[in-house]
Design a protein around this nucleic acid. Structure first.
Lengths: 241, 241, 241, 241
DNA sequence: AATGAATGAGACTTCATTCAT
DNA sequence: GATGAATGAAGTCTCATTCAT
């Protein structure tokens, strides 16, 4: 039946449900960021989304469900956008750089989303069945970290990365640092800016720069250094919006 | 009569109070780690610590108070231990290494404590008045990040670190990455080990290794080292009180 | 389906809500009188009204809310009833007498209500924002004491009241005494009867009698009475509501 | 034993106890007036009086005890002062006037005390065993209202009061009105002043004036009227302190 | 006599969720 | 499918009072 009305989504039952769902998720989203997931009540979500509590239960069984739905959307979105960013890159080094650059942009442009992931990591990741999380990850990104590990391997092969790296270990180590730094900065936000006196994404881009130097093959560093730095900095220029 | 026990009761009362306080904090501590700060109820803390709810309120006014007390203890402890670690180190590079090494050891030996800080960063840091946090920090560690910034400066001066670093920026960038990585690993713990198949502290030590390579002066280190050394060194001498 | 019951549910819902509200207020009412407002707990009100505590909070946010609602009803009721009483009275003196008579009847027939007002005056009136109280009063009785002041003025003009009275001052002074006496008698009730050996309303009616004598013009009352009569009558005719 | 140390009260045990008692009562007193008896907690009283909770229980068994002690002091004080006031008065009318005048002065100078009695009347008088109250009253003022009733009787006899009064009834009726008015004004205080725009004791003195006229024998009123009024007003002159 | 500590009882309130319509 | 009403369960915190020293 839904197939039939596929073309007039605005008026179909499906479309209506989808719209309601969106309203709920959008409201939840903002509240989670503003007050923390645990401190946001279902009642607040319903009143913010404009639906009745009883109605909400026809869309989500409980708060966990909502969190989970948001998580899925977020991961999907990030996964897609990061893939786009990697597309044009000609070689391993360029793709690695693009990937990290993408994370800096995320921090700059979508701090709320990054913050949500930070919350999730800090509180829920450990509680919720690892299986469920891994399942979700594998649905969204079937290759997982493998792709990135391959990136390091390639870089070593083409001489742009240090030869003494262990691809799997290095990739996890670096990605973890980058994600950790990104989320921490998103969480602390203003606090760091108060302390350091500069927008947080500058700090984050410097982190990336140091890491990349640390990964780069010794000789290569001299030749490309100044070049790289500029690229990073140019992006940073668009400071506090 | 009172004369006889004149100092006994004082001892006893104080000691007793302190012991009770400890019981409560220790119970809270474990529960916070196991279930998350927000999902731990006062009732759980009291029943875990063996004191009556009403008794607990004579020690702490509310959960926030407890969290805050734990935070203070933690920061104090880490601050002290890290200072000890830096004591024997002969030069900037050695101290930098010692510092990062210390953080790896913390992750390995006290994941619970690191996890608490991770939770705090992700959820509360933003809610609670920046002022209160900064006040606490300045009480515990009056020099703040300044010490570490000085470390970088020294390293640049003695030629062991890249000359193109901006001490303040670099220090914040690196410390943030290290802390972010450390806390993230502590939070995800098993999940990462499941995915990568190795203990998390290995990943963390690799992160440190890459960062240090990224900071270290390329080769020229030998050539430029003696140059500014003395001046800088003398400045560093003023030990933190 | 919804068409059919279109106005039924509205009726039902509204009616049901109103009924529940009443149950709560009625229960609260009795308890306040029996034990005092402060010594009545929310739990007692709920259990007396037969609704669940959580249900009650969907009708009233807290005890203050309930007290306030009762206060409003009471004032409204008294205001309406007193207006009715004044309607038929031909002149100022008659209306004044009717008003005081009405208060005696209230004491006799609704001691509980009078007692509530006594409690309110003695404990809450000072705590609660004067503004809120004045707002409520002005909603219920927009003319306020002005009407009564006018009554005195009229009485002086038609010669039934002493010419040396200051209308505003006298009115407030007399009304305060009457209200004060009424509420005190309602509060002490049995105690006074025990002491004096007669029903309290007798005492109250004697108070009124003395006051009226004190207000009445010495002799001239008979001579000037008919003078302004008609004018007054016409004014009274405009029925309330 | 206590007899012996009677002369060095400052250093004796008895004196100490008395001082402690005073501190407690004084603290309680203020709190009762500021927040209401029911809303004042024992903890507040102890912390305001500077004694430890456990110590307080060596002086008073509970809050009721404290209230009762204050009540006794108050009644005693008022009884004594009113007796002094009546002493010099030459005849019934003068004594009656002096009595009512005294009440106006009380309202003006000790509103807090009057307010306490108002609270007591409104909330406790009904709860607490009538017997206990009557016992207290008879201890303090063994003749009770009888004295005042006698006053009316005298006034009728000497021709200064209306002959148609029933001494007992009238006395109770008038005293009740006066006390009721006095306490109500003390309770509402500022509210009335806001509404009427004049100090409350002016209103109260007008109440008294009207009542006295109502009681006075017809002829007598003409002769003494203007005289009386001035006396009352002159006192009122010392307005808002 | 004074007091620090403890505490049972209970007050107020919130919340996620269900149910009947 | 939407919704108003209801509610059990639980959470936080307070308070009067007792007890051991």
């Amino acid at each position: 039946m839904p197939r039939k009305k596929e073309n007039k989504p605005a008026h179909t039952y499906q479309a209506h449900r989808e719209r309601q769902r969106r309203r709920i998720l959008d409201a939840a989203w903002k509240l989670f960021d503003a007050y923390g997931i645990d401190r946001t009540t279902m009642a607040e979500i319903t009143s913010a989304s404009g639906v009745q509590p009883s109605t909400m239960y026809q869309y989500f069984a409980n708060k966990e469900d909502i969190v989970w739905a948001i998580l899925r959307e977020l991961m999907q979105e990030v996964s897609e956008r990061s893939k786009q960013r990697l597309e044009g890159a000609p070689n391993a080094m360029a793709r690695l750089t693009a990937l990290l650059d993408f994370m800096a942009d995320e921090l700059e442009n979508n701090p709320v989303k990054v913050r949500f992931m930070a919350q999730f990591d800090a509180i829920y990741a450990r509680d919720w069945p690892a299986k469920r999380l891994l399942t979700l990850e594998s649905q969204i990104n079937p290759e997982g970290f493998g792709v990135f590990t391959e990136l390091i391997r390639e870089g070593i092969a083409d001489g742009s990365l240090r030869p003494d790296l262990d691809p799997g270990l290095t990739m996890h180590a670096v990605m973890n640092a980058v994600i950790g730094a990104q989320r921490r900065l998103a969480s602390l936000g203003e606090k760091v800016e108060l302390e350091y006196g500069q927008p947080i994404d500058q700090l984050f881009r410097e982190t990336i720069r140091v890491l990349l130097i640390g990964l780069r093959a010794p000789e290569a560093s001299k030749t490309r250094r100044s070049h790289k730095r500029k690229a990073v900095h140019s992006r940073t220029r668009k400071r506090s919006a």
